[in-house]
Structures are given as C-alpha cells and as structure tokens.
Amino acid sequence: MARKVLVLGEVRDGSLRNVSFEAVAAGKTASEGGEVVGVLIGDSVSALANEMIHYGADRVVTVEDEKLKQYTPDGFSQALMAVIDSESPEGLIFGHTALGKDLAPKIAAKLESGLISDVTSLEEAGGNLVFTRPIYSGKAFEKKIVTDGLLFATIRPNNIAPLEKDESRSGDVASVAAEIKDLRTIIKEIVRKASEGVDLSEAKVIIAGGRGVKSEEGFEPLKELASVLNGAVGASRGACDADYCDYSLQIGQTGKVVTPDLYIACGISGAIQHLAGMSNSKVIVAINKDPEANIFKVADYGIVGDLFEVVPLLTEEFKKLKVNA
C-alpha cells in the first residue's frame, strides 16, 4: 500500500545527523512506493532541506521559528502537529535519539496512535510492514506490526543503511506556518559533557575502556587509537564508577546502546549489563589480560594481553595502514 510518510530530520550544531538519512531510507521502505516527505524544525533549517532530498526524500517541509532554536517537547510538537495537519501522513519516522525518544510518545498520544520504538530493521512481508526491534536489552528481538492507524516508528541510529546520496535529485521545499507558544519547559543552560568530535551513538568505530584502564590518564592511549580510526571513546560502568571518565561515555544497559561497525573493548570484563549495550556491534575485538574474561565470548577477535602494550601497537599498525591506503 503506497503511503505518504513524514520523516523528521534531526539537526545538531547546524548539520543534519546521520540518523536523519537512515530515517529517510526507512521512510522509503515504509512508503511502499508512496511519498517520503522530510520535515525540518528549528530556527534556521531550510538550507539543509536539499540534503534530505539528495538522500531520498521526495520533498521537504520546514517549520522555522526563533522559539524552535532549541528542542522542547511543546515547541517541536506544535510545529510537527502543524505539518501533520497540513500533510495528513499515513506514516511517521523519527530517529530513536534523545530528541526522538522524547517527542515521539507525545505525538503518538496526541494522535492516539501506536508507536514502535527503537527499530533496527523494517521490511514488507506477507502484506504487512514488519518492524524488528531488540527487547530485554538486546538479549532477544521482536517483530511487530501496526494493527490500527498510523504507521509510526523511531529507528535506532547505525542500523538501517542510508540510501546513496544523489546530488542531482531535486524536490520542492516549502515552509509551514505554526504558532509556537506557551512553552512550559525552558532550557536555561546546556552543559556540554559528551566527547568532542565523534558522537558515540552514531560512531562507526568505538574504543571502549573498562576497569583495566586503571585511571583517567589510562584513557589516553584509547583516545589516540580512536582519533586514528575517526572513532569515539566509550567506557564500561566500572570505569565510570571508578571515576576514570564521565558517565556520558558509559555503554551498557544503563547508559548508551551502541552498534558500531567496530567495537574494541579494552580491559573490559564483559558483564552482562555491558554486553547489553554493545553486543549487536558488527565486529567486536576484545583486549584483556584475563583469558577467561566474559568479553571473549562475544568477541570476533581477541588478544590476551595488557591493553597498555596492545593499544599503542594497534595505533601504530592502523597508522601504517592509513598511510598505505
């Protein structure tokens, strides 16, 4: 059934997050030959519209207002509802990001619709659109369908491949007027703590440290390796609890759930709560002194050894690889 699907693009520091393009790809599948309409909300976002079209959106609708400079549930839901009223979509796709997780349930409640959260793949099967999502912290998966009303899902970053960028694609960009008022939550301050550079939840490569890193300084070799691989640094709860790093780096059941292409676990024992946050990574490398460490059970490749010896050697080897490439 061809349907019109709205895809919410997400803007961070003036550019579109990768998950926006993945959402367009998911929207394309969900539209089943219908129309994919990108939606951009912010104080100044229309310049980004064409990029959504290059990645597969048929056209883009923007809502711009000073009061939409920062995300608030009231402001963004007012903007999005104005778009929904004018477009009457049959499907909605957001990223399963801090913004998407916060906003999607509010929109679903307003529309009295279902919502399938944290989707890692979707496909047409037996006349239905089937959404796959992890449950029990990734220890199991469920397949879900929408039985009544709007097709509404949030997609987990890094799981659905974006469509190939085609800069020759063009489409209509229109703005929708919305009255943004009575915001009940006011952001007074934003304290940036997350690692500079690569966003952990969208990183293709993650170098994570555990208790074996031993100190704050112990993270330095991991940071060097991450920068060579253009990756991000993460941590186990043990490392965060021991104050070696900020909780914003924590990967696990509490903390972030990540699915990079390459996850290098350094000095991480592999408690079940940590595995819940990373075991769906495409390739896992474990570096640990203890050959019995649980992390080796989920690793594709393992090196039994001291991370302070292995990681710098790895950094050098990858540097050589980059030079030769």
């Binding site: 619709s113 449950i135 199991a140 469920e142 929408v146």
Partner: peptide, 11 residues
Amino acid sequence: AKTKTIEIYLP
C-alpha cells in the same frame, strides 16, 4: 493495542 508482536526470537 495499536500494535502487535508477531514473533519473538533470540539473536
């Protein structure tokens, strides 16, 4: 419910 689980499986 507006949605339905049709299958649960282990990875």
